[in-house]
Design a protein around this nucleic acid. Structure first.
Lengths: 241, 241
DNA sequence: CATGGATTTTGACATATATCAAACCGATAT
DNA sequence: ATATCGGTTTGATATATGTCAAAATCCATG
């Protein structure tokens, strides 16, 4: 059986998708593969700006992003909003809803996107029969917890430019993990959305981009990014002036 | 069978602990209860300041806090540190380690504390046999994800006093859920630790406490807190001047 | 009860980022 | 090609919080 080249977070039950290798769980026997197919995972299309789910929606499924990308945002009663993450191909979205059986945030497509729907009750049934699936699901949830810790560190103790450096380096790594260029890519989100994610105003984000460009760390033309020195960007993240 | 009065997050496999009702999973049959006892969950004591686990330690167990309280902190290479949470009786700690099989943060006792050790591999085996345990575990992990979203909102978009109000109201609710006073309690953490958690300097935390006291929202004497008006504190959290 | 070290409070001042405002740019429609 | 609109960049200024410092208080220990 062919092994996926993607990091383990990216692999999940999705056996009859076209991109078979994309989200297949590792190390399953033929017998286990068959069970896997009990997961009727429909593929759905979402246009840019459309909601995959909304805060308050009942938990039906988790979603594996098949193409495109999403943002998740958390809304406070007082109108305050916070982007809590940007998700791309191969990532799983919807884990927040297991807690209360209802989604705690909105998920919105940043571009034309496709998702594999993974009905959560079936996922639980199946993961009782397939230990590797069970463990994989636990890992995905735990990874999300660890990711959050990193964001807390960023929001709680980094300066604006460090935050932006962290953001760009994170994107770079995730593109690289997908076989895309780690240094040249298109941003799918606005300055406002980046600001919301990083706890900054959009003007501050824009200024930080400009400053990085002046310093020769990156080349930026609105949403086209080229990282000129990953190393120096890393230094910036670590707080060197 | 007696039902626990605690919120569901607090209940988890811990059938032979003294405080039997504290962390027992809901709705198990006698048969299921027996299986539960396969979880050999030893109880351990931790003195104030001692480590329950350290970043990099291999995942062995999750821990249910039986008495006392802990902080978790995330350390960056450059020495930067961020308190990512304060955990109290009945809460589960250690979920971060499932992702990579190693803990991503330190857990340190804030006072003399006892924990129930829940060996993680046994927990996985058992949760394949007990759907209610399985779902409960999923809920606990998802709750931690939702909690993180709340902290991101706080760190990303709230002012110092709003953050402190959110912190105090959160403690208040958690004490109330344990049958303790929601308005009078002792802080177990220093101003520095609160600041690290809230993304503020300790001086700013201290000033915010003083200001709340001047305004008659709370009465504070170092670590003894009395909330004089939950309602007005809530208003402050929502951003009214 | 007295001493010393850690923690907390308070003050004065510095600064990073927010806010407000205007100009600029690129895409889409007329 | 021109106008329009959202998004972005840049500038000037305000402000919340950080930083540095000193005083006050608390707590553990002899």
């Amino acid at each position: 059986m062919q092994r996926s080249v993607l990091p383990s977070q990216l692999k999940i039950a999705c056996s009859n998708c076209n991109l078979r290798e994309l989200c297949l769980p590792v190390d399953l026997s033929v017998d286990e593969m068959k069970k896997m197919e009990l997961l009727s995972h429909a593929k759905h299309y979402y246009a840019r700006g459309s909601y995959l789910y909304r805060s308050g929606d009942k938990l039906q499924s988790l979603y594996a992003i098949h193409s495109g990308s999403f943002k998740t945002q958390f809304l406070h009663e007082d109108g305050r909003e916070q982007v809590t993450g940007f998700q791309m191909v191969g990532e799983i979205i919807g884990l927040d809803a297991i807690s209360t059986d209802r989604h705690s945030c909105d998920a919105i497509a940043l571009e034309s996107s496709e998702v594999c729907e993974l009905p959560f009750n079936k996922l639980e049934v199946l993961s009782r029969e397939l230990p590797s699936l069970q463990h994989h699901l636990h890992k995905i949830m735990s990874s999300e917890i660890v990711r959050s810790q990193g964001i807390m560190l960023l929001l709680g103790s980094m300066r604006a430019e460090q935050r932006l450096a962290a953001f760009l380096l994170n994107l770079s790594q995730r593109f690289a993990a997908r076989g895309l260029s780690p240094t040249m890519f298109q941003l799918r989100m606005s300055r406002h959305e980046i600001g919301s994610y990083l706890g900054l105003q959009l003007e501050t984000v824009s200024r930080a981009f400009s400053h990085f460009q002046e310093d020769g760390l990156i080349s930026v033309k609105v949403r086209s990014i080229e990282i000129l020195s990953l190393q120096r960007l890393q230094l910036c993240l670590n707080g060197s002036p």
